[in-house]
Design a protein around this nucleic acid. Structure first.
Lengths: 135, 135
DNA sequence: TATAATTTGTGCGTATGTATA
DNA sequence: TTATACATACGCACAAATTAT
């Protein structure tokens, strides 16, 4: 499954394989993924390598990870629309730990910061919100 | 410097300390950070712990990391403004490896995906672009 | 209620590869 | 060529949260 001399790192090859399974629907929303140990044994890699692959998919918003429970394919909820007011700007970045707890952002998920003309900013988790401009 | 029994994980305490140094101006844009080995020895933690802290700051856009060279405080370039067209939406997430190479996105940096009314999307690295709506 | 099993989170140490100077 | 510094990968141990017994 994983080819060590493929040029691509093992954790990316594993992430690609899992991403493809989700994309093809072999793993459907709500399905549980194998445990990190099982994934590692099946792919012939260590657990730290598995964890990097899992972290990538989590950051892309494809899966959710719950400590003590497991990993599941994210049920994609409809994103909430946040209108970008005239004269405002929006930037995206990873949150600080404080911002993560303040706005209930899952680990590895970016935030959207909407800054108004007055310089004040609102923070939104990027996995639940999209920025819109009405036509 | 790092208190193991503080509740907070060591890698987050280290990230907080570095973030504070940058925020206070003790580390200024363009300055090089100590090597991962030096940071670890100074803080009394292993290199894998240091790397997690460094990865967090990189994801927040505070530093740049160059393999074989070192780590520096990011010189904040003026963000390029991308106008959000009427009827368009913008979402943020982490890129897939393919998107990273296609759009030259540094490791750990989110992307902004602007989707027009026709459903076609443009991808921008979140560390170089901000979304704007003219007033 | 208490205990154990499961599963992810944190942290260490070590080795090796790769890009840069 | 050599040295430096980050990247990848492994294995191990223990902690913490959840679920099952």
């Amino acid at each position: 499954v994983i080819d060590p001399r493929r040029g691509e790192p093992a954790h990316r090859q594993l992430a690609d394989a899992l991403r493809a399974q989700i994309g093809r629907g072999e793993l459907r929303p709500g399905d549980r993924l194998p445990t990190e140990l099982q994934l590692g044994q099946a792919a012939g890699v260590g657990r730290s390598t598995v964890r990097r692959a899992v972290a990538a998919l989590r950051a892309e918003g494809l899966i959710t990870v719950d400590r003590g429970h497991g990993t599941r394919v994210r049920r994609s909820p409809p994103l909430e629309d946040v209108v970008l007011p005239p004269g405002s700007t929006a930037i995206a970045r990873m949150p600080t730990p404080e911002e993560r707890v303040d706005h209930d952002v899952p680990e590895g998920v970016p935030i959207l910061v909407v800054v108004g003309p007055d310089g004040l900013g609102d923070v939104y988790p990027a996995d639940r919100v999209r920025i819109t401009r009405p036509s």
